[in-house]
């Protein structure tokens, strides 16, 4: 589904990502883990086109998307959340989802004129489905900046889903959440997989990733050091060393 070949990103002397190969298969949850600064967020940014890669290519369903600008990658079917929440704080909750309705489906459904200058009813109805899913339906008309931290994280995810992506990139969706919140998050991600969505999950919370990921890729210093099922990865010596810092 989503394939990354020989991807590299250097910031001056820092090799944030360095010759990475990844393959996220249709309908699976691929966990991407690694110590702080190992290049996970940079990988997401490269896949989304936040900045150009130093080297390497990205394919979505066999189509190369490396030359596409950021906004076209969303319409191609890749949506993401941000590790450090980046909502539109001065817009209301449902309007945040409205902003993501840029997929070809939305454009076809709504028609150019109605989409840009027409009423909000249709767009809102479609957004409400995802707000229900994220448990934010009652907050639809609050300002996004007025939400609590946990709610903002859920809104990030709802906004990405509202784009009707085929691949969802979640950058540490559980960071800063309580144990109870993580449990519902876990359940939500499982429901998404059931719905056929392909997910790349970046997470430091081991219990969560190990529990739901089908496969896991471990990064260190921008390189892949291990890949396999959660059990295989947990047993891997290189992984333990990377996390414990003994090399």
């Amino acid at each position: 589904m989503l394939e990354v070949k020989d991807l590299a990103k250097h910031f001056g002397g820092v090799k944030a990502v360095d010759g990475l190969d990844l393959h996220v298969r249709q309908g699976e949850i691929l966990g991407l883990i690694g110590p702080n600064g190992s290049g996970k967020s940079t990988t997401v940014n490269l896949v989304c086109g936040v900045y150009p890669a130093t080297a390497g290519t990205v394919w979505l369903e066999g189509q190369e998307i490396t030359p596409l600008p950021m906004h076209r990658r969303l319409t191609a079917g890749i949506a993401r959340t941000f590790q450090n929440i980046r909502l539109f704080g001065q817009l209301t909750v449902w309007q945040n989802l409205w902003m993501a309705q840029n997929a070809p489906d939305h454009v076809r459904e709504q028609g150019f004129f109605a989409r840009w200058f027409g009423g909000q009813a249709r767009a809102r109805a479609s957004a409400m489905d995802y707000l229900d899913f994220a448990g934010l339906a009652e907050k639809a008309d609050e300002l996004a900046s007025a939400l609590s931290f946990g709610e903002q994280r859920r809104l990030e995810m709802a906004r990405a889903l509202a784009a009707k992506p085929r691949v969802l990139l979640l950058d540490e969706p559980a960071a800063g959440m309580s144990a109870a919140e993580i449990e519902t998050l876990d359940e939500r991600i499982r429901r998404l997989r059931k719905g056929g969505l392909t997910i790349l999950l970046i997470e430091h919370h081991m219990e969560l990733v190990m529990g739901i990921a089908d496969r896991i890729v471990v990064l260190n210093f921008g390189r892949r050091i291990a890949e396999g099922t959660p059990a295989e990865v947990q047993a891997d010596r290189a992984v333990r060393e990377a996390y414990l810092g003994t090399s």
Partner: peptide, 16 residues
Amino acid sequence: RAVGEDELAAQAMGID
């Protein structure tokens, strides 16, 4: 407004 608030997030959400 979305663009004014966060250009990067707006682009990531598919806004040109």
